[in-house]
Design a protein around this nucleic acid. Structure first.
Lengths: 350, 350
DNA sequence: GTTGGCAGTCGGTAGAATCGAGTGCTAACA
DNA sequence: TGTTAGCACTCGATTCTACCGACTGCCAAC
């Protein structure tokens, strides 16, 4: 399934001449390593093409004309464009994780305990440690889960708490403010009716609420409406971001750092960013591909997590366009597989 | 209560000579405004002391000797030290919020809806908008709250979910993995027993668990132990950080930005930072006062939120030592009061 | 005690000179 | 035709110098 990095459909990967491809790759690799423009002689040296710098130069002119490379200025080496990185990534043979890191991942998943949320949060830390990039872990919403139990609890006569448990193990609470004093008996009765009404439904199911105007019926109506009003938010998606300080390590300009951070602050935006990338069928979005101008200096890697074959979240990594794609892809891949295994088909989630 | 900014007890505010105090204040104000070292003539101009720069100079020498000011280098103006800021803050007449901002706060609290967590999170955004600094909102843990209800829910035969509702309106879930298949009847029975056992206790109460070895008793024991194991974490404290991107606006060095961000990433650390400051009886910690070396370029402002007179959280602002103390203090103060009012004595929390 | 005057310090900036990495072009070569 | 060596050229980066200007500290006069 992951023979090579998942690719695009749109910039049909019109294969480059073999030599040109080699040169492009060399430029990308070198630039990722050094962050400097790379020149023809350096390429000629690293690559086993047995050609002179002059020839490389000629090819680089072509590559530049075709938009894979740019010169920051005359008399500098070349730097890959987004298109250049794209080609590189599309033709990247997926590598494995270093064995130390593989060990770390195994170790981690063998030892994490706690609720799903805790695991996801810690996973984001793991990802950031593995790669030195900022990580994003998105947990799916529960809009498709069915309700296992709802319970109304009296905080005091005027305040009730509706606690709903979903089949995916998530628990949601909603405050209800009554316009009249509510007795414990009424709460208990409302709770009972709510259970009868809602168990095994999903948030998308429309239910028939009682139209009477007594206390209990009013409570029930209120509870159902407040529960179903859940949707407009991110429909329960959870976002965990790890290592935002890595942003400051990886970009040199304070202004870039600021822009990227302020994107990361907006969880809804992060969710849709990840979702957009997945929707495009990509596993990597490079520079402008991600659609957010402030992130044009970034590349984003995503890998989906599935439960019973259904998409149920994703892990992501955010770095500079000159990120270490192979390692980062491997890390995202491996971690998402582990998550899929833990929460997916089998029942062994601890 | 807030006639002047809450002060220290330790660096006994040995009052400075009135003129020196004026000069120090002028330096601080000017430096906060310009971020530049400020020179004697500039001070002489801004201040109504009717003295010449030379005199100011003489005083500044004293102030420097006493540790309130430093020169970045010979032939530069002076910059306040932490001690200088401390004096300034201790003698700051607390100002009011600008009327536009006052309006914004009122508006905000008139319109926020949703659960406590949502309100706190949005409050952190509000604070950051009011001040342009990074904000921290800490919600108290529920270790002192009593349990209103516990419920065990069957996810499947081997997995149960313990859902606990506390008197402060918080809801906590815990997964339980059974080593045997559990029937719905057993879960219901365990649930009943748990309620009998735990209602009106707090997490600190030790309870007598059944010692029998049947399924129900085992479930009950497991549930109680998992619930009481809660403590080691931050005992349920919630942290919301708003505007981390402001860090990049406010500090120029990427390295500083990185260090500060990586502190902010560690929620426990943030909680104890805030707690430490409150424990010292401070409302502002300047530079090294906060005890974290990476934050030595920062000042932290905190204001407590109380419920029924009991400390129940705090709001904080983090900026550079040259932050706009008056405005930031006012903002923190006002917001914390609004929170206190909302969640505190009266019953109007919507 | 205050002040004007003055020499001295030192960072910051502007300009010139230099360096060197890397290019594009061209002519020769296989 | 493709490849290569050679070469002139470009242009950012670095270094150096000179200089300016913002301050200070000190001192003598008020």
């Amino acid at each position: 399934m992951a023979r090579r990095a998942n690719t695009t459909t749109k910039p049909s990967p019109q294969d480059l001449d073999a030599r040109r491809a080699t040169i492009l790759e060399a430029v990308v690799v070198e630039h990722i390593k050094t962050a400097q423009p790379v020149g023809s002689s350096s390429v000629a040296a690293t690559v086993d093409l047995a050609v002179s710098p002059a020839t490389v130069r000629a090819e680089m002119v072509t590559l530049e004309r075709e938009g894979y490379l740019v010169q920051p200025h005359t008399s500098a080496g070349r730097v890959p464009t987004d298109k250049g990185y794209r080609y590189f990534v599309d033709h990247l043979k997926s590598g494995a994780l270093g064995s130390a890191q593989q060990h770390q991942v195994k170790e981690f998943f063998a030892n994490v305990r706690g609720e799903v949320e805790d695991v996801l949060e810690q996973t984001s830390t793991l990802l950031t440690q593995l790669t030195s990039y900022t990580s994003v872990v998105v947990g799916a919403g529960h809009s498709h889960s069915s309700i296992l139990s709802v319970q109304l609890v009296n905080l005091d006569a005027r305040h009730q708490l509706l606690v709903s448990v979903f089949s995916d193990g998530s628990v949601v609470k909603h405050s209800i403010i009554a316009s009249f004093d509510v007795t414990h008996e009424e709460v208990a009765e409302a709770s009972k009716q709510l259970n009868a009404l809602l168990i095994n439904t999903t948030l998308e199911t429309r239910v028939q609420v009682p139209s009477r105007s007594d206390h209990v019926a009013t409570l029930v109506r209120e509870a159902v409406s407040v529960l179903h009003a859940e949707k407009p938010t991110t429909d329960g998606e959870q976002v965990f971001i790890g290592g935002s300080s890595r942003v400051a390590e990886v970009f040199q300009g304070v202004e870039t750092v600021r822009k990227v951070l302020s994107i990361l602050e907006q969880e809804l935006l992060v969710v849709s960013l990840v979702q957009d990338i997945l929707d495009q069928g990509l596993s990597v979005a490079i520079g402008s591909e991600n659609g957010y101008e402030p992130l044009s200096a970034c590349a984003v890697i995503v890998a989906q997590v599935t439960i019973d074959g259904e998409p149920a979240g994703a892990v992501g990594l955010l770095g500079p366009t000159r990120m270490k794609y192979r390692e980062a892809l491997a890390a995202a891949q491996v971690v998402s597989e582990h998550l899929t295994r833990r929460f997916g088909g089998d029942e062994s989630h601890a």
